[in-house]
């Protein structure tokens, strides 16, 4: 929770609650720009949905994300409380590593699916705590072979 002060008024901002509505607003903005030239009949349904979504996003921001003068007009609150965002942090860096490895895998799989899959499986397993080299190689090899056999060879998915 971040506390801001402006002309004697206090705003408490809950950054965690702002992320989704702001993402929605960005999407709505992009949607509006992309569809503004279309005939009315094309957006007969989409337009009211778009505006309703914007309204709900704003309502969530003001209901959950921003508190105006919380606890009455507590203007004597110490500036020391303006310490910035203290939202929940990841309990582990693992999640971030997995997201990064997945992003790298997406790039790699466009070059060589089998090799990228093998490296991703081994790399992620290692990141998540498996240290035994034989297990890492065996797991990655067997699983890559199964995935290749099922999806590429049997289901003919052009990976």
């Amino acid at each position: 929770m971040t506390t801001l002060s402006f002309r004697g008024h206090i705003f408490k901002i809950n950054a965690k609650e702002l992320i989704f509505p702001f993402l929605v607003l960005i999407f709505c903005g992009a949607y509006y720009v992309d569809t503004r030239g279309l005939p009315d009949r094309s957006v007969l349904y989409a337009e009211p949905i778009l505006y309703t979504t914007v309204l709900f996003a704003l309502a969530v921001i003001f209901d959950f994300g921003v508190q105006f003068n919380p606890n009455g007009t507590d203007q004597g609150e110490s500036v020391s409380s303006m310490t910035g965002v203290t939202t929940d942090k990841w309990r582990s860096k693992n999640a971030l590593y997995v997201i990064l490895l997945t992003s790298a895998y997406l790039v790699g799989m466009r070059i060589q699916f089998t090799l990228a899959t093998f490296l991703f499986l081994g790399g992620t397993l290692y990141t998540l705590g498996e240290q035994n080299r034989q297990v890492l190689i065996l797991y990655s090899t067997v699983l890559t072979a199964i995935i290749y056999a099922v999806f590429v060879f049997w289901l003919r998915i052009p990976l």
Binding site: F27, A30, A46, T52
Partner: peptide
Amino acid sequence: LLGGTFGLLVATVGSDPQLAQPRA
């Protein structure tokens, strides 16, 4: 409601059913 209308909006991405104009 925000989640629901966002889902409805996502579902409108693509050609509209009346004039087949591309949306978003």
